[in-house]
Simulated scan of single mutants.
Amino acid sequence: MSNSEQDLLAIPAKKNFEFIDSIRCLAMIGIVMEHSIYNGTYIFSGYPPKHILYICLIQLSKFGTIAFFVLAGFLLGDKFTTYSSWEYFKRRLSNTFKPWLVWSLVMLVAILAQRYVAIHKSGDEYHFILELESKIKLVYLYTNYWFIINFMFCIAILLCFKKYLYSFWLGSVLLICSLVYSINVYYEWFLPSHTIAIFGFIFYLWLGAICNHYWDRLENFVSKTNIFIYLTVFLITFVWAVFDITRLMDAKSVDPYNTLRLSNIFYSVATLALLLKVKNFNFTKYLKPRKTTFGIYLIHYILVVSLLPEIFRPFHLVPFKEMSVAFMLFFISFRFLLVYGLSLLIIWLLNKTKLRWIVAL
């Protein structure tokens, strides 16, 4: 396999896991959709139908992060049998760190420039060091770039316990660590942000490895179970997750959309199970997920944060709560298609240059 194919979520050629491509493509669509939809947390008064629709649209896409950890763990379990712990970690770090560093720095420069322009227009004094410190913390702890730091940390932890990778005792300990963050979402003993939950996602990486280890049994079970059971569980967990968000909003939660909410964990697993049941989504092959998934993840958030506001600024659009339902749906759809389409275009253009390595192709 060439270096250009050794991306973050590469598929082992010797195994027929092509369906993972389809599912991770949908997971990435979910992540881009969530970031394209989100326009603030407490932007509505009460729960009019428009607010419920807004919550539902965000929740619909909230399975992506946990799904990615499970899928990565699934493929990780296969790779652990091929390489030594240090060799695997070194290869993974080499193939992901440089692209991640490039795009995270682009993000950092972009938001620093935005902040400079805003302060210059207001006539206030610009303190570069203070702004730099603040924006470094923002980019690497509170944007999508946290994922790679967290992901590599999770891999390192599992590599340390490689001998016990398929031990359910290890899984139990990791589950307890994750549940501490989940319960904290409701009680807020410490800052309940999933982007700094460094121990909160290791369990899902382990869960993916376990799914790989017992794949024959799992696949047999999934194939024999009626799809309506998966659909029913999906709908029940979705409604629970939406209700959970409203309850956290009533409690004035810092992060009512938190990925590690108990309801969202069940929803994410239910969604992943449903996708495994369907398994193949033929349209995804046209999006070439194996070559574009990591690049889209690295690029799309810069477009959401830095490009979209500049595109729509001249139109002086009213806030979401003042939009009609039809226009809000159109606006959200347009934002998503623009971000996803431009991300694909940038990847396609970079792939034709010597800079293709920065999109991990």
Rank of each mutant, 00 (worst) to 15 (best):
G341S: 14
Q59T: 01
L53A: 03
Y47F: 13
Y38N: 11
N226R: 08
V32N: 13
L355T: 02
M249R: 14
C154Q: 13
S333V: 13
P49H: 00
K277Q: 11
H127F: 12
T96F: 11
H316T: 03
P12Y: 12
K98I: 15
N212Y: 15
D255S: 14
F44A: 03
A113C: 03
V278S: 00
R247T: 08
Y187H: 07
L303F: 07
T96R: 11
T246S: 13
N184P: 00
L342M: 15
K285P: 00
D78F: 14
L75T: 14
S268V: 03
F128S: 05
H127C: 03
F19Y: 15
A270S: 15
K162Y: 04
P12L: 10
Y340N: 10
L231T: 13
S263W: 02
K14M: 01
L108C: 02
K135L: 00
I111N: 07
T284Y: 04
R115V: 08
S182P: 03
P319L: 09
R261N: 12
I157P: 05
N226P: 00
G341N: 12
A27S: 14
S167D: 12
V359P: 05
L179T: 08
M28Y: 04
Y38L: 11
N264R: 03
V70G: 01
F19L: 09
W103G: 05
N16M: 01
L235C: 03
K224T: 10
F44E: 05
F19C: 09
N258H: 08
L355W: 11
Y42G: 04
S268K: 09
P49I: 12
I136K: 02
L337K: 14
F44T: 04
S22T: 08
Y42L: 06
N144P: 06
F320V: 15
